[in-house]
Amino acid sequence: MSEQRPTQGTQTLARGLRALELVAQGRDGATIQEVSAQLDVHRSIASRLLATLAEARLVIRGADGRYRTGAGLAALATGIYATLRAAAEPVMRELATDLGATVSLIVDEGSEAVALAVIEPPASGYVLSFRSGSRHPLGRGSAGVALLAARPPAPGEADDVTTARMRGYAATYGEVEPGAYGVAAPLAAIEGVPAACLNLITYRAEVAESAAPALLAAAERISAALR
């Protein structure tokens, strides 16, 4: 019996899945050249594979040319985003209840901060709310600043990013929602896990001013569960 050879379609699918795996497993994603070398294919083929994955929001291309995992993976209910949510949500519920404020899990998607999960406190009073999938530019709001602070120092970076990196969390006021305070703490860098942070938003100054220790402890608990 002759050996059945893979068709062009199945070969392309296999390469695409392998390219996605390479991006997900890389500590800081992967470049077209790195995918090309690992798959032993021409650079143009690697570029097309990554472009197709990007169209499906499974990966995103950063300003530095590197491809990183995208929030579209969450829709598959498997993979690293599902693992990240499963580790984070129980801790987020505790935090939202204890502080009486909305807590979100925000991931770094190249030039944007994207909400992967949002937990509101079980309170009868008015609380700030937004949807999973909401996004805003990195560097804006506490989550955007915290995610930039989780990256290596960059020439010319904003002072609030440098400050956030030094103290371990970011705090802002009115940058995304007028009149709202934001406090965010990045999760530890873990190989194969996208950069993420816990973000708290509230209209209450006293909550924001005292939230950092609890937020940092929660981020460490989630990071420990992912290791």
Rank of each mutant, 00 (worst) to 15 (best):
V107K: 02
V107Y: 03
V107Q: 01
V107H: 02
V107W: 02
D108E: 12
D108W: 08
D108S: 09
D108L: 11
D108P: 01
E109Y: 03
E109L: 08
E109A: 10
E109N: 06
E109G: 04
E109W: 03
G110L: 10
G110A: 09
G110V: 06
G110C: 05
G110M: 08
S111F: 09
S111G: 12
S111V: 13
S111N: 13
E112L: 12
E112I: 01
E112H: 12
E112N: 11
E112A: 13
A113M: 04
A113C: 04
A113I: 00
A113F: 00
A113P: 00
V114R: 03
V114L: 06
V114E: 01
V114I: 12
V114M: 06
V114C: 01
A115H: 02
A115N: 00
L116S: 07
L116N: 01
L116D: 02
L116K: 04
L116V: 11
L116F: 05
A117C: 08
A117P: 02
A117T: 12
A117R: 11
A117W: 04
V118P: 02
V118L: 01
V118C: 00
V118E: 00
V118Q: 02
V118M: 03
I119Y: 03
I119E: 04
I119S: 07
I119R: 04
E120W: 05
P121A: 10
P121I: 09
P121G: 06
P121C: 09
P121Q: 09
P122V: 13
P122M: 12
P122S: 12
P122R: 13
P122N: 11
P122G: 11
P122D: 12
A123L: 14
A123C: 11
A123N: 11
S124V: 15
S124W: 13
S124N: 15
S124K: 15
S124M: 14
S124T: 15
G125Y: 13
G125E: 14
G125H: 14
G125C: 10
G125D: 14
G125R: 15
G125W: 13
G125M: 10
Y126N: 13
Y126E: 15
Y126M: 15
Y126F: 15
Y126L: 15
Y126Q: 15
V127T: 14
V127M: 04
V127A: 10
L128K: 07
L128H: 04
L128P: 03
S129F: 06
S129V: 07
S129M: 07
S129Q: 10
S129Y: 06
S129H: 08
F130M: 08
F130A: 03
F130C: 01
F130S: 01
F130I: 07
F130R: 05
F130K: 03
F130G: 02
R131W: 07
R131F: 07
R131G: 05
R131N: 09
R131M: 11
S132F: 04
S132G: 11
S132H: 08
S132M: 10
S132C: 12
S132P: 03
S132A: 15
G133P: 01
G133R: 07
G133Y: 03
G133C: 07
G133T: 05
G133K: 06
G133A: 05
G133I: 04
S134E: 09
S134L: 09
S134H: 09
S134W: 05
R135S: 09
R135L: 04
R135F: 00
R135I: 00
R135Y: 00
H136M: 08
H136A: 10
H136T: 10
H136V: 07
